[in-house]
Amino acid sequence: MDFVDIACPYCGETIQLAVDGSAGAQRYVEDCQVCCRPIEVAVDVGADGDLSVRARDGNEA
């Protein structure tokens, strides 16, 4: 399990997500721990095992 800090796309606060990199690429929704709004989280794992985590609100295309 890896822990990644991201900025909430709604309130801008930094929150920490627990990410299981062994599960491969993932897409899921997690509520912000500060403002409780739903964040769309995208996790990608590079060939070298490095995680790329992106967070966006539901209004982004």
Rank of each mutant, 00 (worst) to 15 (best):
A18M: 12
D50T: 07
M1Q: 14
V43C: 10
A42D: 12
S52D: 15
I39E: 11
G58L: 13
D31N: 14
V4K: 14
V45I: 12
A25R: 14
D2L: 07
C32G: 07
A7V: 00
V53E: 15
E60M: 14
D57L: 06
D44G: 06
V53W: 11
G21S: 14
R37D: 13
A42P: 00
D57P: 07
G24F: 05
V41S: 05
F3Y: 14
D31I: 00
Q16C: 07
E13K: 10
C11G: 06
F3K: 15
E30P: 00
E30H: 03
E30S: 04
V43P: 07
D48E: 10
C8K: 10
T14H: 01
E60K: 13
D57W: 03
V41W: 06
A25T: 08
Q26I: 02
C32R: 10
G21H: 12
D44I: 00
A61D: 12
P38C: 06
Q26R: 13
I15A: 03
C8H: 06
D5A: 09
V34W: 04
P9F: 01
V29Y: 04
R54W: 02
D5G: 01
M1E: 14
V29T: 11
A23I: 01
V53N: 15
G46R: 13
Y28I: 07
M1R: 14
A55H: 04
C11I: 05
L51T: 10
V19A: 11
I6F: 01
Y10C: 08
A18F: 00
D2E: 15
A23R: 15
V4D: 11
A23M: 12
G12R: 08
Q33E: 12
L51W: 09
G24K: 09
D5L: 02
I6G: 06
C11R: 10
S52A: 14
L51G: 13
I15Y: 02
I39M: 13
Y10S: 11
D2M: 09
C11Q: 10
D44N: 12
C32K: 09
L17C: 08
D44A: 10
Y28C: 06
S52I: 02
R27K: 13
A61G: 11
V34C: 05
V43W: 13
C11L: 03
A18C: 07
L17T: 07
E13N: 10
C35Q: 11
F3S: 15
E13I: 02
P9I: 02
V43T: 08
